[in-house]
Amino acid sequence: MLSKNGKRDTGFWDAQRGVIHHSNGGWLAGKGVFCHGYDMLEDLVGKASYFQVLMLNVLGHLPERRLADWLEAAYICMSWPDPRIWCNQIGALGGSARTSAIAASVAGALAADSSMYGGRTFLAGVDFIQCACAERDAGASAESIVAGELKRHRGKVKIMGFARPLASGDERIAALEDVATRLGFRVGRHLQLAYDIEAILQRDFDESMNICGYVSAFLSDHGYKAEELYRLSVLCVTSGVTACYIDTLEKPPDAFLPLRCDDIEYRGQAPRELP
């Protein structure tokens, strides 16, 4: 649309120039620090847990303490200091290369933005269990839901939240179940369906639910959307990455899995002259 002076109407952008309209909060000098309607220093510091505030910043509302405690436990389950894990190895390489702790840790966290592991898997994990639950509500059985997934993947168990790289079974689920029980949470319809699906996969394929499937189903029962869960998980691997960074930092450079020239197998073009 052209305005009266013959120029393009850019009024929308003109109104945003030099002004920030923000719905989360902020620091107004002399007035306070505000966070989604709370006075941060008066209402939150010393009264809410860090994970409650983390969830507040992601979701826009303060969750009950026990749910934040459960998420904190889930975070512990999703990060351990084993440098063989891909994101952790990046942290270890950062230590070996003498990067800063923050650089190595965020590089590892970024690596976990992966379709194979880490927070991104929750997008597909939540999507699956919520769609499956809708199918079940419409009359489908867990058997038919699994059969449909197997057909889509030519008979292979490729259901996000079930089966796991490197190992079958996932010991973290039992630990989180114990936490959930202690905190008084009950099994909801998404998690019950996940258990039903797992029982079929165990019976037919010796495969089981993984932590992505458990967390996706548990938080679906609390009304969370896939993107919300993804956002809640942004730093879920970081503490293990930092631990792996520190371990190699405290050793000589290049001491972490050093490679000789012939440890890389070259299968390319034979030596040739420039044309």
């Binding site: 490197l166 079958s168 039992a174």
Partner: peptide
Amino acid sequence: MTRQRVKVQRRNESFVQRTVTR
């Protein structure tokens, strides 16, 4: 909770001994 605890076992995935590049 209704779930039976599942035994965790390493898969016998075959990883390369050396990284390959062309």
